[in-house]
Every structure is written in C-alpha cells, then in structure tokens.
C-alpha cells in the first residue's frame, strides 16, 4: 500500500499538517495537528478571520486523517467520530461540522454525495439540518485521480482497450495502485475529467460502465 503520497502544494493553506502526517500512510500512528487538542477548536469561532482559519484547519485534518486511515476514508458525515475528541470531551456540533464540509466542497476538497439534498437543505434555510450533509472526500482531487488512472493505463499499455470500472478499481491488476478501492462515484468524476480532456470515453450505463482510454 505504500505510495508516494505527495501532498502537493494544492492542498489548502494548512499544508504543514498534511506534509508531516501524509508521508507514510498506514504505517505510523496518525499524528493529529496541534489544533486537535485545542478545546476551542470544537466551537465555531465568532471572529470571521479566526473562523476561516478554523475551517481550513478542520479541512486539512479531515483530509490527512482520511488518507491515513486504514481502510482509507472516502465518505464522511457531520456525525463522524473525527469531530469528537473524547479525551477533551469536546465535539464539533453536526451543524458546525456541516459548515466544515460545505467549506471543503467550496474549495474542491469534497463533494456532496447527494447534491440535490444539499441544495434543498440550503434552500430550506441555514437552521435546518435536513438530510444530506454527507460528502465524498477528495484527499486526492478528481484531477489527481485522473492523472493516476491515465498513467497506469499508459504504463500497462492498455490504451484503446475497454476496461470496466470494476476492473480498474477492484481488479487484481490494480491492487498496488492508490486508486484501488476508490468508490465508483469518485472514480466517475475522475474519468469525467479525462473525458473532458478527450483522453477517455465512457461506455455503457449502470454497474457495467466501461472506460476506454486514448
């Protein structure tokens, strides 16, 4: 599973956290950033500058944690245990956690699993916590996944071959790749990037979706 998890410079302002914790996933214990043991981190801050920094610290923490977890974490709800620090007896309230996730979606580091529910919830007003709120975590952005898929296809000489998504994500041939085990939904958004660049084509519908790389 060892992979050069290069936390690129695109990883939000809190790159420090990511570069220090991300170098060797799944081997060392996860090192929480210092904010994790800072009690006010679990209360939404009234000062807007401070709050912006708080949200991006949360985002960095979540992405680093998700990439480090074993098995890796691909989806997250506002009620996830990462938002609770039992030692401090502090929890980021689900409404606040939702703001964190919204911040991540805004910055391209996550996507709502159910976009329609998310927009509905927003229309219903900020106060309601009606459904939605679950996100796909992009600790690799779809662009980065797309790049990995592309170079794997290139390296294995499978251009112009039709591969099913299942083969790509669950097949033995890719078991050493980082994208192995990637949820289909995330993989689709990565393939969509390649399609937009004219480097791939999606074939078929439903579970048997195939991809052809050029």
């Amino acid at each position: 599973m060892a992979s050069p998890a290069a936390a690129g410079p695109s990883l939000l302002p809190t790159t420090d956290i990511l570069t220090t914790t991300n170098t060797s996933p799944n081997t060392d214990a996860f090192v929480y950033p210092p904010q994790y043991s800072f009690p006010p981190f679990y209360t939404l801050q009234p000062n807007l500058t401070t709050r912006a920094s708080q949200l991006s610290s949360w985002s960095g923490l979540i992405l680093a944690y998700a990439a480090h977890a074993n098995p890796r974490l691909y989806r997250l709800t506002p009620a996830h245990s990462i938002f609770t620090n039992t030692a401090l007896r502090r929890t980021l309230a689900p409404t606040d956690a939702r703001l964190v996730l919204a911040h991540m979606v805004e910055h391209g580091r996550a996507a709502w699993t159910d976009p329609t529910a998310a927009t509905k919830a927003r229309k219903a007003g900020a106060g309601s916590d009606g459904g939605g709120g679950e996100v796909w975590l992009y600790w690799r952005t779809p662009e980065e996944w797309a790049q990995q898929l592309g170079s794997w296809v290139e390296a294995t000489g499978q251009r112009n071959t039709v591969l099913t998504l299942y083969e790509l994500l669950e097949g033995d041939a890719t078991s050493r790749e980082e994208f192995h085990g990637l949820p289909v939904e995330v993989a689709k958004s990565a393939v969509a990037v390649l399609v937009r660049r004219g480097r791939a084509q999606m074939l078929g519908e439903g579970d048997g979706v195939g991809v052809k790389f050029f």
Partner: peptide, 10 residues
Amino acid sequence: SDGLVWVDRQ
C-alpha cells in the same frame, strides 16, 4: 475581534 483569543463554549 483581534483574533488573539478562541472561544470554547463547551
């Protein structure tokens, strides 16, 4: 308001 202090309401 100067951002020097964080609030913990819990």
